[in-house]
């Protein structure tokens, strides 16, 4: 069944912009991205929107719908009432380029700051052997599609631009956790997580987990375990004592 939906879409660029009202045909089974494509085709051919797979796997069409960070291609129109105004804006944590397209280069900068996988010396690719139990935890984090919705919703950078310098954000703290838990990674990532990537700024309010389209338990399975590893290293004299004694025995 078709109906005419009411939409408010942010139009503009870094110099300014505003929400523009549109009335667009909506058909059964459609998602918000379908409607935006119809809007482009019929009323606003210059509307900028980034998209690619339309299947929730490329992470391109991240935006905010009625104030919530979401993928445009995974938000069904059936979740809205027919007379409800659907407001679409770009992600509000990153600089806007035009309309719904933002500059997410902050994330690529943060990605480059993390040392890559570091296998033991003398172990060549092809010689890696790991038990499934050992890699299970990291595999959850590999589901990340890098839509950056978690980065967008994290109040540490969303509400405090000045923290971008010192805070990697949930996506990249999760990347550190993935490598730290990897059975063949020998790099020491715990101190760097706290000192260089700002793990201590995370106050575990779980918005990153709430918005993750892949359902990754970022807070419970990555951020809190990393905080516990930092506590092992920095704030637990018993663990320090145990490690000191075991090192002396070795």
């Amino acid at each position: 069944m078709s109906y005419t939906g009411q939409f408010r879409v942010w139009r503009g660029d870094a110099d300014g912009g505003a929400l523009a009202d549109f009335r667009v045909e909506v058909n059964e089974g459609e998602v918000v991205l379908d409607v935006l494509h119809r809007l482009q085709a019929t009323q606003a051919p210059d509307l900028a929107v980034r998209w690619n797979c339309k299947a929730g796997k490329c992470g391109s069409c991240s935006a905010e719908i009625n104030g919530k960070p979401r993928l445009l291609c995974m938000t069904r129109m059936s979740v809205f009432e027919h007379d409800e105004v659907v407001t679409v804006t770009p992600m509000r944590t990153f600089p806007v380029i035009r309309d719904l397209v933002t500059d997410v280069s902050y994330n690529y900068t943060k990605a480059r700051e993390i040392p890559s996988f570091t296998p033991p010396a003398g172990l060549a690719p092809g010689e890696y052997r790991m038990g499934q139990a050992d890699v299970g935890r990291s595999q959850e984090f590999r589901k990340c599609i890098e839509c950056f919705l978690c980065q967008d919703t994290c109040h540490v950078v969303r509400d405090h631009e000045e923290n971008k310098e010192s805070f990697a954000g949930p996506r990249f703290l999760m990347r550190i956790a993935e490598l730290e838990m990897h059975p063949l990674d020998v790099a020491d990532r715990v101190s760097a997580a706290q000192d260089e990537h700002g793990l201590g700024r995370c106050n575990i309010t779980k918005c990153c987990t709430d918005v993750c389209p892949e359902g990754i338990k970022i807070t419970d399975n990555a951020l809190i375990p990393m905080k516990e590893r930092v506590a092992d290293r920095r704030y637990d004299p018993l663990v320090w004592l145990g490690r000191t004694i075991s090192r002396r025995r070795d």
Binding site: W10, G16, E64, N66, G67, K68, T87
Partner: peptide, 13 residues
């Protein structure tokens, strides 16, 4: 540099 939306939040829930 960020989109000037003009509202602190647009959440309707």
């Amino acid at each position: 540099g960020r989109a000037a939306v003009g509202a602190r939040t647009l959440r309707t829930d």
